[in-house]
């Protein structure tokens, strides 16, 4: 991927992230993500209806990588079925861990396909995927 385009996508999503701000609504499932390896601290909430992700929101303090990855992940997952979301999460995590994955499924999430070169940032990029997985587990 062109480095300028990569940077532009990350920066846009960091500076103006999708669905930042939590709401009062008991129909959402919630998760607090306090990264063990860095100082990212984000709260997540997600609503699933009829087997589809209706909404994901987040708030808190985190670095450019975590925040942008959260924003891009939310854009990607909204409206998908739980099964479709799981597939994307799995492929995304495989990409971060340098395992086999299908890049065509991931769209703009591909901007993190070289993040493994900065090992201390891998957890930042993984953070939203771990959060969504945990929330999906809670709904089981």
């Amino acid at each position: 991927m062109d480095e300028n385009l990569r940077r532009e996508i990350i920066l846009d999503n960091y500076q103006d992230p999708m669905n930042r701000g939590l709401i009062e609504d008991s129909s959402y499932v919630r998760e607090r993500m306090n990264s063990e390896s860095c100082i990212d601290d984000l709260d997540f909430m997600m609503k699933i209806e009829d087997g589809k992700i209706q909404d994901i929101r987040f708030d808190g303090e985190a670095c450019a990588i975590s925040t942008s990855a959260t924003s891009i992940m939310i854009r990607k997952l909204m409206g998908l079925t739980v099964e479709e979301a799981r597939k994307i999460l799995e492929n995304y995590q495989n990409m971060i861990y340098e395992k086999e994955y299908d890049s065509e499924l991931l769209g703009e999430l591909n901007v993190y396909d070289t993040i493994h070169k900065q090992p201390n940032r891998m957890n930042c990029a993984l953070l939203p995927s771990v959060a969504v997985k945990k929330m999906l587990e809670k709904l089981k």
Binding site: I39, E61, A62, C63, T67, R121
Partner: peptide, 21 residues
């Protein structure tokens, strides 16, 4: 600028600091 991003920036200049609480 988030503190951690600032410390990563400083690392590019070979300056070791700590970001966080």
């Amino acid at each position: 600028v988030f503190a951690q991003d600032f410390s990563i920036f400083l690392n590019h200049f070979h300056i070791a600091v700590r970001a966080g609480n």
